[in-house]
Deep mutational scan, measured.
Amino acid sequence: QETIEVEDEEEARRVAKELRKKGYEVKIERRGNKWHVHRT
C-alpha cells in the first residue's frame, strides 16, 4: 500500500483519477488540513 499526501481535495481527486486509470484501487482520506490518497 502506498500513500500520497497532497494539499487539497482537488489534487487528491486528480491523483486518484490518474491511479484509477492505471488500474489501481484508491481511497481518499482527509487528515486535518492534508489529504491522503491510499493506493490499495
Results as ranks from 00 to 15, higher is better:
1 Q>P: 00
1 Q>E: 07
1 Q>S: 05
1 Q>I: 15
2 E>S: 11
2 E>V: 12
2 E>R: 12
2 E>L: 03
2 E>C: 06
2 E>N: 14
3 T>H: 15
3 T>K: 14
3 T>A: 11
3 T>C: 13
4 I>R: 05
4 I>L: 04
5 E>Q: 14
5 E>D: 08
5 E>T: 13
5 E>M: 14
6 V>N: 09
6 V>F: 15
6 V>C: 08
6 V>M: 14
6 V>Y: 05
7 E>G: 15
7 E>L: 13
7 E>R: 15
7 E>C: 08
8 D>T: 15
8 D>R: 14
8 D>P: 14
8 D>K: 13
9 E>Q: 13
9 E>C: 04
9 E>F: 10
9 E>W: 11
9 E>N: 08
9 E>R: 14
10 E>G: 14
10 E>R: 13
10 E>I: 11
11 E>I: 15
11 E>A: 13
11 E>R: 14
11 E>S: 12
12 A>M: 06
12 A>F: 00
12 A>D: 00
12 A>C: 03
13 R>H: 14
13 R>Y: 01
13 R>V: 03
13 R>G: 07
13 R>Q: 08
14 R>Y: 03
14 R>A: 05
14 R>L: 03
14 R>S: 01
14 R>T: 02
15 V>N: 02
15 V>D: 01
15 V>I: 07
16 A>Q: 07
16 A>R: 04
16 A>G: 06
16 A>N: 01
16 A>K: 03
16 A>S: 06
16 A>W: 03
16 A>H: 01
16 A>P: 00
16 A>E: 10
17 K>E: 08
17 K>T: 14
17 K>H: 11
17 K>Q: 14
17 K>M: 00
17 K>D: 03
17 K>P: 10
17 K>G: 12
18 E>W: 03
18 E>P: 03
18 E>F: 07
18 E>Q: 02
19 L>D: 08
19 L>P: 11
19 L>C: 06
20 R>A: 09
20 R>Q: 10
20 R>L: 04
20 R>K: 04
20 R>I: 02
21 K>I: 04
21 K>W: 04
21 K>Y: 14
21 K>T: 10
22 K>W: 04
22 K>Q: 08
22 K>T: 07
22 K>S: 06
23 G>T: 03
23 G>A: 09
23 G>S: 06
23 G>Q: 05
23 G>K: 01
23 G>R: 06
23 G>L: 03
23 G>V: 01
24 Y>V: 09
24 Y>T: 06
24 Y>H: 13
24 Y>P: 04
24 Y>R: 06
24 Y>W: 09
24 Y>I: 10
24 Y>S: 07
25 E>C: 04
25 E>K: 06
25 E>T: 14
26 V>S: 12
26 V>Q: 02
26 V>T: 09
26 V>F: 00
26 V>M: 05
26 V>R: 01
26 V>Y: 02
26 V>A: 12
27 K>A: 12
27 K>I: 02
27 K>G: 08
27 K>D: 12
27 K>P: 02
28 I>P: 03
28 I>V: 09
29 E>K: 12
29 E>A: 06
29 E>M: 08
29 E>D: 10
29 E>I: 10
30 R>F: 13
30 R>A: 12
30 R>V: 07
30 R>W: 06
30 R>L: 10
31 R>Y: 03
31 R>S: 12
31 R>P: 03
31 R>E: 10
32 G>M: 06
33 N>L: 10
33 N>H: 13
33 N>S: 12
33 N>G: 12
33 N>M: 02
33 N>E: 13
33 N>F: 08
33 N>C: 11
34 K>D: 02
34 K>E: 06
36 H>G: 10
37 V>D: 00
37 V>Q: 00
37 V>T: 02
38 H>F: 12
38 H>L: 09
38 H>V: 09
39 R>I: 06
39 R>P: 13
39 R>M: 02
39 R>V: 08
39 R>C: 10
39 R>E: 08
40 T>R: 13
